[in-house]
């Protein structure tokens, strides 16, 4: 109960903060992923005529949005808290580091929900044939966010400076999407990259999102991979996120 109250308080602090910066926040959360979908459709050419291709591009944009939310923006937030001394403020409180991370994570989930919903509405308005399996889609989004947030926490905990950290989060946020078969089919990738992509969470996230958007439910392998990666990255992230220095 206490922990839930702490997590809620951390979430509300960050929400109150965003309330004051609503313009840029909405721009980033709503417009950018939608623009990415339109861009992908535009460069896709004749290939995009197929429903499956348009579904892949929409799923890719959802994953891109999740990646931006949980690595780039969340990482930036954590880095900002750390390097402006706000983390020190939390460290003076009887608050577990994990409660702080979960509070920020809930904030990332709220952002992800907003971004994903917007993209689905844009997709529907543009005629993408959607038959989303909502429950499974929510599960995939949550697991993807947890997994990618873990990476954001790791970077924010280990970066030696704000600029180093923000360079890493930006690179990883975009890199994980561009190096994985998110916007294109795996067979279009060089063989070595295809093997490497099997290690990236975005590969499984893109496949799972695409399947659930088409109404499918055969994503056990993807869920397992995302779940294992989430456990691994969050466990490492929590281990590194400490109030107390040695």
């Amino acid at each position: 109960m206490t922990r839930a109250a702490d997590i809620s308080c951390v979430f509300r602090i960050h929400l109150a903060r965003v309330r004051r910066e609503a313009g840029p926040f909405l721009l980033a959360a709503l417009v950018f992923p939608s623009a990415m979908y339109l861009f992908a459709v535009a460069v896709g050419g004749a290939e995009v005529a197929h429903d499956e291709s348009r579904l892949r591009l929409l799923a890719g944009s959802v994953v891109f949005s999740l990646s931006l939310t949980s690595i780039s923006w969340l990482g930036y937030l954590l880095l900002e808290n750390r390097f402006t001394g706000r983390l020190k403020l939390f460290a003076t409180l009887p608050l577990a580091p994990s409660s702080y991370v979960f509070g920020v994570l809930v904030f990332a989930l709220a952002q992800a929900a907003l971004g994903t919903t917007t993209l689905l509405l844009v997709g529907r308005a543009l005629g993408v044939p959607l038959r989303p399996n909502v429950a499974l889609l929510v599960l995939v989004v949550v697991l993807t966010i947890l997994c990618l947030c873990g990476l954001g926490v790791i970077i924010a905990s280990r970066a030696r400076s704000f600029s180093e950290g923000s360079l890493l989060t930006d690179t990883l946020g975009a890199g994980l999407v561009l190096l994985a078969p998110v916007y294109y089919a795996p067979e279009m990738m060089p063989r070595a990259l295809r093997v490497f992509a099997q290690l990236l969470p975005t590969t499984y996230a893109a496949r799972a999102v695409q399947t659930t958007l088409a109404g499918g439910h055969d994503i056990g392998g993807e869920l397992l991979a995302l779940g294992l990666m989430a456990v691994a990255t969050l466990a490492l992230g929590f281990r590194l996120m400490k109030w107390r220095e040695d």
Partner: peptide, 11 residues
């Protein structure tokens, strides 16, 4: 009260 700590400027 730490020697240096940041506050949330928008609150």
């Amino acid at each position: 009260t730490p020697q240096e700590a940041g506050l949330f400027e928008s609150l």
